[in-house]
Structure formats: structure tokens, C-alpha cells
Design a protein around this nucleic acid. Structure first.
Length: 275
DNA sequence: AATCCAACCAACCGCCTTACA
DNA sequence: CTGTAAGGCGGTTGGTTGGAT
């Protein structure tokens, strides 16, 4: 018990008086919190902490409840559907974790944030590019996400190929630049234009409805407006090709996530080169 | 068997926003 | 209108664990 919980040697006398605890929660503390909320409900966290006899800050109680103790918290591996949704929503909203989490029932913003940092940013690192770079975003959208869709389709017994679901796939539109995606860093908070699309995912997506909706973007999402620079797009993919095979890129990601590779990256890029 | 290292994730911190007196 | 407390959010840290050497 005490082996885990550090006792705060606080900077302020008032906190010292309260003998606030930090660090991992004990079973006893969890039970106190659960029991108190079962009777009195959530909210007013500072009062809750005091009345429940928890030597924790209200913030700490709130975090523990929301991220761990809440009965509807969903634990375990992030499914391909959830991964796809996270990638999509992050491309639209950036690091708006709580907003993203609202569309993944049972998942917490903390969990999604951790997923992003550990799995996704690792890939960017391996590709030697920034997670917010166009290079990485394009790779995500045109390699990784279609793969996820294929996997989802396969799992549901569907026969559609991801490439067939991409209306703007360059293989089908010779000479046309790959569309630029929305600049997530500048995505307006609470943008209504995207909300209408995202609500389609607000319940756990089935693979069928999901893939269908996924490609039913509003035009401004697909085309990316002023960010849709042909020069930047082509340069990004040239760069990507340069480092790709040696970096192993998403192969590692998929292996880390759930097993075998879906595509040969050589296939992907030879298709791209034939355009 | 011991050590090292990387990945994972729970928890904390600080800032910003909101509610209320 | 203003000040303050509480809540919410995103970034970061640090402990644990498991795999590699």
C-alpha cells in the first residue's frame, strides 16, 4: 500500500496539512471512490475527495474515476476499427484527445493519447519525419488507413479492396496529384463542418457502414484547400519513397499492432510510380 | 542469470475555460 | 464586471514490464 503511494512533501503548508497522497492508487482508495460515487454521484471533485476520506486532490480523483474506475471504461487492445477512427479523427482535429475520445465509446482521452504517442509517433520516428508532417500524414492516409480498411473488410468477410474504395486514388486518376489532407494543426476547434461527418461514427462502427462513411467526406476534407500543393505532395512522396524500404515503416506498426503485413510496400509504390 | 533498453500506461502538472459569488 | 475556485484538457513524467543481449 504505502510502497506505492508516495506521500506528498508539499510545497505549500496547506497541502502539507492535508497530507495529500500522490502516485498509484491503492485498492482501498479505489473502493472509497467507487462507493462514494455510487451514493453521491460524480462531480464536485474537491468536495468528493474530502468527504470520501481520500487524501487526494479533486483532480486526481476525477482522473482516476474517468480513466480507470468508471464502469463503462473499455480496456484492452485498440481494434482496427478504433485505430482507423483515431487516425481519421486526428487528421481532422489534431491533438483534441477528448473530442476524439467522444467518438470511441468506452475509450478515454488518456488511452487514445497514449496510443498515439506510443504507436503512431513511433512510426513517424522510424520514417524520420514529424508526425505532423505532410509526408507522414499522406502515408497514414494512403497506406495505413486503406490497410486498416482492408483488414476490417477481411474480418467481416467483405470482398472489397481498399484501393477500390478510394475514389481519388492516383492509380485511378493518372497524372492527378494526391489530395492534400486537412491541416490538423490549424483545424478550428469545434468546427461544425466536420462534426456532421464524425457523428456517423459516434457508435461503435461496423466495418460495412464504417468504410462507406469513411470515404463519404465533404469535399473540403478530401481536397484540403490551399494545402493541396502539387509540388509539396510530390516532394513528400519522393521523400517517402527514398527512406521507405529501409525504414520498414508501417510494417513495424502492423506487426506491433496485430500481426502480419497486409501489403507489400513495393507493390504500393510501384503502383504509384506507374501513374 | 544479470543487465540493458524500449514500450506501455497510469498519474501528475500546468494552462485554459467556465461557473459562480 | 471582476475575482476566484473548480473542472477540463493536452503535455509530460516516471514506474513497471517484457524482450533482447
Amino acid at each position: 500500500m504505502e510502497a506505492h503511494g508516495r506521500v506528498l512533501s508539499s510545497a505549500t503548508p496547506s497541502e502539507e496539512e492535508m497530507d495529500l497522497r500522490r502516485g498509484p492508487w491503492t485498492v482501498e482508495e479505489d473502493l472509497k471512490l467507487i462507493n462514494y460515487i455510487a451514493v453521491h454521484g460524480e462531480g464536485r471533485w474537491n468536495t468528493l475527495a474530502r468527504c470520501a476520506g481520500l487524501k487526494r486532490t479533486g483532480k486526481s480523483c476525477r482522473l482516476r474515476w474517468l480513466n480507470y474506475l468508471r464502469p463503462d471504461v473499455r480496456r484492452g487492445n485498440i481494434t482496427p476499427e478504433e485505430q482507423l477512427l483515431i487516425l481519421e479523427l486526428h487528421s481532422r482535429w489534431g491533438n483534441r484527445w477528448s473530442k476524439i475520445a467522444q467518438h470511441l465509446p468506452g475509450r478515454t482521452d488518456n488511452e487514445i493519447k497514449n496510443y498515439w504517442r506510443t504507436r503512431v509517433q513511433k512510426q513517424a520516428k522510424q520514417l524520420q519525419c514529424d508526425v505532423n508532417s505532410k509526408k507522414f500524414k499522406d502515408a497514414m492516409r494512403y497506406l495505413w488507413m486503406p490497410r486498416l480498411i482492408e483488414r476490417i473488410q477481411a474480418a467481416s468477410g467483405g470482398s472489397l479492396q481498399a484501393s477500390n474504395l478510394l475514389p481519388d486514388h492516383p492509380a485511378g486518376q493518372p497524372g492527378q496529384a494526391w489530395p492534400c489532407q486537412e491541416n490538423s494543426a490549424s483545424a478550428p476547434a469545434g468546427s461544425n463542418s466536420s462534426d456532421s461527418v464524425v457523428t456517423q461514427f459516434s457508435s461503435p462502427p461496423t466495418s460495412d457502414s464504417f468504410t462507406g462513411d469513411y470515404y463519404n467526406y465533404p469535399d473540403n476534407c478530401i481536397q484540403g484547400g490551399e494545402n493541396n500543393s502539387d509540388e509539396g505532395t510530390q516532394a513528400g512522396f519522393a521523400q517517402l519513397e527514398d527512406g521507405w524500404y529501409e525504414n520498414r515503416g508501417f510494417l513495424d506498426f502492423e506487426q506491433g499492432g496485430w500481426g502480419e503485413n497486409l501489403w507489400s510496400l513495393e507493390d504500393i509504390w510501384s503502383t504509384q510510380q506507374q501513374v
